[in-house]
C-alpha cells in the first residue's frame, strides 16, 4: 500500500471524527490539533487508522509524531508487515 493510499484512509477517518472539517482543510503537513482535534479525537484517529489498516503496534510507536504526515509515516511503515 502506498503512502498516498494510507493518507487517503487517514483523511477519511479525520472527516468522520471531525464532521465540521472540510477535506480541503486537511493537509498532510498540518497538526491534527490545528484542524480542531482534541486529545481524545487524536487518539481515536490513531486507533481507527490502525484498525482500518489492520496494524497492531504499541501506541508508543506514535510518540514522536507531530503532524499528520508523521502519523501517515508510522502507519505506512507498519502496514502489510
Amino acid at each position: 500500500m502506498s503512502k498516498d493510499e494510507v493518507y487517503h484512509i487517514v483523511q477519511e477517518i479525520i472527516m468522520e471524527i471531525l464532521p465540521d472539517v472540510e477535506k480541503e482543510n486537511i493537509a498532510i503537513e498540518k497538526q491534527l490539533k490545528d484542524i480542531g482535534a482534541n486529545s481524545i479525537d487524536r487518539m481515536e484517529i490513531v486507533t481507527m487508522s490502525m484498525r482500518e489498516l489492520n496494524i497492531k503496534i504499541p501506541l508508543m510507536s506514535f510518540a514522536g509524531v507531530n503532524n499528520i504526515e508523521g502519523l501517515v509515516n508510522v502507519l505506512h511503515e507498519n502496514v502489510n508487515n
Binding site: I40, M43, E44, M48, R51, K56
Partner: peptide
C-alpha cells in the same frame, strides 16, 4: 479479537 482497536473514547 482485537483489544488494541477499542476506541479511546470508551473510557469516557
Amino acid at each position: 479479537e482485537n483489544p488494541e482497536y477499542l476506541s479511546p473514547r470508551y473510557a469516557l
